[in-house]
């Protein structure tokens, strides 16, 4: 079986005031139907930009695909026409955005908004599309879907709005669902409901999911594979369990250990959290031929400052872009 989505050496450039900056630099990945891949990293690392590129939604005139291929279902969509992209978006690839408050239209009821997506892609009459919207709201477990379909976004709670967003994204039974921080704005108990819902829907429909998040815990619960992004480049790529067990890139190690986790054997003693000093470099430094993490890394050597690290492959399918991956 060939993978549903293959990305080969993708490079995306943004035109900024300081010149052209590669926000995604040499990214490759593959994703099979029914599987979940997760992107993690701090803000400004290019996670959302990858999602926008997959959707063909890069900011016009500012962002462009400079090199590489995005092959979705056997078709290279980097050079697809706007009309073809419009067909794919919503139909085959759809997206759940971070802020359920701002990504729904406040002046249309949620039922109308879901029905609109259905009518745009499936040529159904108004009434049938509305009925389908109600079914979808039921599928995402909104109580009394018939009555609630006429509600406006402000009449719903944050969790319900996010579920309405998911219903909209699922309207045309996409093959690939991109969820960009779907639960960051929500409480933990609601987050658990949404994750459960996504897992169930994935089982039923066999869709592939790309989950973008900054929470390693969420990755561990949801995904099979993970890509750790840093400054537009892949830092580490591989199976989630292997990477959490033994991260080979110092940035991944930092991301896991800098967050206080709830663990089963809790003690009175609490050690200081591991700090990753400094912040993500600014866009204008992104293209340099060196390890961009070097300035924040405690394992840095001469090599890191002078050459971009090459991929190191390990037996368990783990790939780390670090000169010292074997020793770590």
């Amino acid at each position: 079986m060939s993978p549903l989505l293959t990305v080969e050496n993708l490079r995306i450039e943004l035109t900024t005031r300081d010149g052209v900056a590669p926000v995604i630099d040499d990214l490759s990945l593959s994703l099979n139907a029914g599987e979940t891949l997760s992107f993690v990293g701090e803000s400004g690392c290019g996670k959302s930009m990858t999602a926008l590129a997959l959707m063909g939604l890069l900011p016009e005139k500012i962002g462009r695909v400079a090199a590489g291929k995005i092959i979705f279902d056997g078709e290279d969509i980097t050079h697809a026409s706007p009309a073809r992209l419009r067909e794919i978006r919503g139909n085959d690839i759809s997206m759940i955005f971070q802020e359920p408050m701002t990504s729904l239209n406040p002046v249309f009821s949620v039922g109308e908004q879901i029905a609109e997506a259905i009518r745009a892609h499936q040529n159904l009459p108004r009434k049938a599309a509305w009925n389908k919207a109600v079914e979808l709201l039921d599928a995402v477990r909104i109580p009394n879907p018939k009555g609630r379909a006429g509600d406006y976004p402000f009449q719903m709670s944050g969790g319900q709005r996010q579920r309405a967003m998911i219903a909209m994204a699922l309207a045309c039974e996409p093959k690939l669902l991109i969820a960009d921080e779907p639960t960051t704005a929500l409480d933990v108990t609601v987050q658990a409901q949404i994750f459960d819902l996504l897992t169930d829907l994935q089982k039923q429909s066999g869709a592939a999911i790309i989950l973008i998040t900054h929470d390693m815990g969420a990755v561990a619960e949801m995904a099979r594979d993970v890509i750790v992004m840093y400054a537009g480049r892949k830092a580490e790529y591989g199976p989630v369990d292997a990477i959490i067990e033994h991260p080979r890139h110092p940035y991944t190690q930092g991301l896991i250990s800098c967050v206080p986790h709830i663990v089963s054997d809790m003690t009175e003693e609490r050690h200081d959290l591991v700090e990753v000093p400094g912040i993500v470099p600014s866009l204008k430094d992104f293209g340099r031929d060196e390890c961009l993490f070097a300035s924040r890394c405690q394992h840095r050597t001469e090599e890191c400052m002078s050459k971009r690290p090459v991929e190191k492959h390990f037996d368990n399918n783990q790939i780390a872009d670090c000169w010292h991956a074997e020793e770590l």
Binding site: P143, S157, G159, Q160, V188, T189, Q191, A192, Q193, F195, D196, D215, M216, G217, A218, A220, E221, M222, D241, I244, I256, H261, I262, V263, S264
Partner: peptide, 25 residues
């Protein structure tokens, strides 16, 4: 329910705990 809803990277903890879902709002 609140504690069980927190996603965790600790595999033993994830195995031993069952998520208690609280439905509704």
């Amino acid at each position: 329910a609140l504690l069980s809803a927190v996603p965790t990277v600790d595999r033993t903890k994830r195995a031993e705990q069952k998520r208690i879902l609280i439905p509704g709002d």
